[in-house]
Simulated assay, not measured.
Amino acid sequence: MQIRSPHDSDLPALLALEQASFRNDRISRRSFRRWLRHRDCVFRVAVDGDTLLGYALVTLRRGTRLARLYSLAVDAAARGRGIAEALLGRVEQGAREAGALYLRLEVAEGNVAAISLYEKLGYLRFGLYEDYYEDHASALRMEKRIRPYTPSGDSRSLPWLPQTTAFTCGPASLMMAMAGLPGHYQPSPEEEIALWREATTVFMTSGHGGCHPLGLALAAHRRGFATEVWVNNEGPLFLEGVRDENKKRVMRIAHQGFVDECAASGITTHYSDIDQQQLTDRFSAGANILILISTYRMDSMKAPHWVTLSGFDDDCLYVHDPDMGNTSPHQGPDTARNPLDCQHLPIAREDFAAMSRFGSKRLRAVVVVAADRPPELD
């Protein structure tokens, strides 16, 4: 048996194995062709001469240290030879060499043999995704740290919510933050739009306006939460992406309105950078945190995007990303993400420093949301 990267000539055998292995959720010919050429994946096949015995496909989430086992199949006639274990070992190695720290997967709750194999190889259960497959079966969620580490910090349970439009990453992130704090806050699609209306900059490069950090802080303040803002630019934000002078004028007016209302509401605004220690100190003290990032390292689009901090350890900061990739007009259906690809994304600390700066002015913005007044921390 040989394990290698697949060739275009393997496509007919891959399709035949897929047809024989799965009744639902099969990978299409078009998708296999795409994965054969895709750079953000680790794809390996097991062969005996000209016979395909099995394959394993792992996808890599750009900009993060997360990999996901997308699919694994072994020919029924070849089972019992350790092929699945060998394939998993090779794709784990490939994901590790690509920089991934974690490998995640989902497996049908009733697939006892596969679950036993994953547990034997060190995968741990961390959740259940109900009604996951086309036949409405539930998926067990499993994860393995494929690089050793020493954990530290608070990785609390924080609800994950997807944004329902291309322009509501800020409201979705804020709903996660507020729903993860003590109290009775209830997120909803109606609330998502209401938050956007309260926090929008009105205009953006194209399409609907994004959300201003001060606007998000004000929206949380109106709902009874304590807020604190860190932003390293005092002037109007996001103007460099807008050419129309009248649009810029409106954005300046909106910005000044947010500034004045924050001052009147007693919301503390720090016009400076916040470092990772300050972020994790506030998180450990019980606050939830929204962070503005640039999506360039994730999708090469250079767009401002809000995410919510969900935990940290010595190597990474972890975030909930509300964007499932199916709301952007620039992305087709093949770019839609699994919800598991968007939760607790591990971002290496050295990468996070660059990712959390946006635009030519290297804008950094953070909104701290707490059930009570944020602690006085340096």
Rank of each mutant, 00 (worst) to 15 (best):
R223E: 00
N233H: 13
Q256K: 15
S310V: 08
A354W: 13
W160Y: 04
T51C: 13
G286N: 04
E191P: 08
F238Q: 01
V259T: 06
D314V: 03
S116L: 14
A95W: 10
F167Y: 15
D321I: 02
R23G: 15
A354S: 13
L128N: 09
Q256A: 12
R90W: 15
N111M: 09
G127P: 02
V242I: 10
A98W: 14
A226V: 01
F352I: 06
G82R: 07
L216E: 01
D40P: 15
I291H: 00
G332V: 11
L345N: 00
F238Y: 06
P375A: 14
D378H: 12
C316W: 06
A177M: 05
Y132P: 05
S206H: 13
A194E: 12
S173V: 02
G49S: 00
M1G: 10
D334V: 08
R364A: 05
F126T: 00
E191L: 11
G257D: 11
L158E: 02
D313Y: 02
A166I: 13
Q163D: 03
D372H: 15
P6G: 11
F358A: 00
E119C: 09
P339Q: 00
D75S: 13
A113P: 01
G325C: 02
L345C: 06
M298H: 10
R197T: 03
A226D: 09
G180M: 03
L103H: 01
F238P: 01
C169K: 07
D314L: 12
E109S: 13
F22L: 04
A77C: 10
V319R: 04
V42F: 07
K248M: 11
D25A: 02
S328I: 11
Y185N: 00
S360Y: 10
R81D: 10
L53I: 12
L60S: 02
R282T: 03
A226S: 13
L345R: 04
H320A: 04
H255G: 05
H7G: 09
D323H: 08
L214D: 08
P322F: 01
V42K: 08
